[in-house]
Structure formats: C-alpha cells, structure tokens
Simulated scan of single mutants.
Amino acid sequence: MKFFSIAILTASILTTLEIAAQSEPPQTVVQGPTSFNGKRSYEYLRQLCDLGNRMSGSPGMQKQQELLAKHFEKLGGQVTWQRFSARHPITRQPVPMANLIVQWNPESKERILLCAHYDTRPLPSQDLDPRQRREGLFLGANDGASGTAVLMELAHHIKSLPDRYGLDFVLFDAEEMVYSDRTDPYFLGSEYFAREYRKNERDYSYVAGVLLDMVGDAKLSIYQERNSVAWDDTRPIVQGIWETAARLGVNEFIPQVRYEVRDDHLPLHNIGGIPVCDVIDFEYPDRRNSYWHTTADTPGRCSADSLGKVGLVMLEWLRSAN
C-alpha cells in the first residue's frame, strides 16, 4: 500500500477519539481453546523477517515461497502458483514473480478470498536518513509480513469453520517493487490475479473478500477505509467485520472512516469485480514517528496482541458466514 489521503473529520470527532484513546486501557483478547494464537502468529512474522528483504525475484522471496508452501500444505491447504513476470524498474530485465494461492474446500462454487501482499519494498524509501534510503535494509515486518503471518496462523483453524463457502488465501507478489513513487507501478500481482479472474472461464465466484495489510502495529488502530465503505458490494463486508470486532470487544477496530488508501483491493474490485474490502492500520501520529517504508519497520514495532486481535476478528467473521 503506497498512497493515501486522510479523511476530513471535524475537530470534535478528533478530540473525542483522542480522549478515548488516552483514557481507555488496551484490552487483551482472552485466548480460548479454539481462539486465534497471536503469539504463534508473531513467531511466524519473525520467521519471515529473519529471511531479510523479500522483494520480488530476490533470494529472500524464494526462501519465503518455499517456507510458505510447506507451511500451508502441512496444514491441508491446496497450494498452486500463479506465475508471471515484469521488468525490473532499474535494470529493465524480466523478474520472475508468483502469486501464491492456497485453497480449502476447492470444489465449492461460492468462495471467500482472504489476501495480503508478501513482497517487501526494495529499499526503505521514506527513511529520514538519506543514506538508508539508498542502501538500507527494509524488512517489512508490518508492511508485508503482518498480513501473511495472520494467514499462516489462520490456516490452523480452517477445520473449525463452516463449509458453506470455499476459502482461498492469496499472497500477492510485486505489490511494491517500487524505487520511484512517481514512475514505478504498484499492485502488479493483484492486477494480474484480477485480470486472470475476469477473463478466464471458471465455475466459481468470490462472494466476499478481505485484504489484510499493515495489521501488526503494536499500537493498533484500524479505521474503515473510504473506498471499502463507499462501494455498495463491500460496505456489508466492512459492517460485518466491525460488528464482529465490537461483539468481541476488540476496540482497535474503530467504526469511523479515517483514510482513503490505494492498495491491492482496488484492482481486485475495479478490474476483477471481486468485492474486497481493505483492513489496514494507516494511523501514524506524524512523519517523524512513522516507521512506514523505513529501516524501523522491524518485528519490534509489531506485537502478538495486535496480530491476535486482527486474527480473532477474521476467524469469528468467517465462522459467522452463512
């Protein structure tokens, strides 16, 4: 996810939210025998970051692909690869890429799509240190690994879900193989997936979808994304997810529109016609305290509690699907 605009809120709403954030202590989700394991999800996030940078076509990406395929197959998922290529923004040489698709209940004609991007940006382009912007290591703990880590843990719970719908996880490659925000394209993996979904004959359709992006921040606050609320076909998905969070007492899901985000849900919806909403935390106090696209996007900025809360909301939302 790369560009965004903050929704205009009245001063009174902002003040109310700020006071609430300061006065209410963070709530911890109680883990039951079948609840989402945030600690294990966090360990998955650390595993991914231990591979280093995972930009498209890199050795780190290849190692990640091998790790993820083994993980999902071990848990009973049917793993396939959607392979494509694109030119490197600098060298102009072709870069092999692959969207990872994991299916459960593959015979079902009505399916739910859960997705995230699993590549990392080549460089920490927003770092305050000019040298780091050119040469620094971008691990992408929150921006890349967090959504993937939630799906890795969610795979442990598939058997507890109703089989009314088929379920697909898709991890998109090349969401941000970007060196220059002005010239390099985003969302190559999700665009390819959306075009293939639209043009190819198929005997199934996606009835709902959720994109998970930047959901591991230790100071979690997930507002509703403007496009996801504006579209008629995704508004009920947003309402269902935030109502699930409210029922569970996960107050980090805030039922207010705060930002408009350019993310993978745009090509999925606008090209593929897939009703996908964006669940994303893009709330930073100011540029100096933001670690977005910097060397500071490390596992230490994320938490098991945040991953656990997001995962539990998604798990319970899936359980309520009928």
Rank of each mutant, 00 (worst) to 15 (best):
S290L: 09
T183Y: 11
A245F: 05
P255Y: 00
L211Q: 05
W104C: 11
L171T: 08
R40S: 04
G52E: 06
P285T: 10
P130N: 08
D163F: 02
T120C: 01
D278P: 07
F84S: 01
Q64I: 03
Q78T: 13
V313I: 12
D305V: 13
R164K: 13
L248N: 07
D213P: 05
E283A: 13
R134W: 00
L14V: 13
Y197I: 10
S205H: 12
I254M: 01
E43F: 06
E43N: 07
L48P: 01
M177N: 09
L154F: 04
P106L: 04
L212Q: 14
N322S: 04
F84T: 01
A208V: 06
F84M: 01
Q47W: 09
E107C: 11
Q224V: 06
K199E: 15
H156N: 12
A321Q: 15
D217S: 09
V215A: 11
G240K: 06
N53P: 01
P275E: 12
E66R: 12
P33M: 06
V210Y: 03
G189W: 11
S160C: 07
I241K: 02
G300T: 00
E252Y: 01
T120Y: 00
L248C: 04
S205M: 09
M177C: 04
E283V: 13
L212I: 10
Y223W: 04
V261N: 05
F36Q: 01
V170P: 11
R195H: 02
G272R: 07
N37D: 13
R258F: 03
M55H: 07
L67W: 08
E107V: 15
V178G: 05
C302M: 09
P106Q: 07
H71C: 13
P285Q: 09
G166K: 14
K159P: 00
D143E: 10
G32P: 00
K309L: 08
K109T: 12
Q224Y: 03
S146M: 09
Q103R: 14
R202H: 12
N53R: 05
P96L: 04
Y259P: 00
L171P: 11
T148V: 14
E135N: 07
L128W: 12
P267K: 03
L128H: 12
K109D: 10
Y204L: 02
A218N: 15
Q224R: 11
P59L: 14
V29N: 13
T244D: 05
H88F: 02
G300C: 15
L315V: 04
Q62V: 05
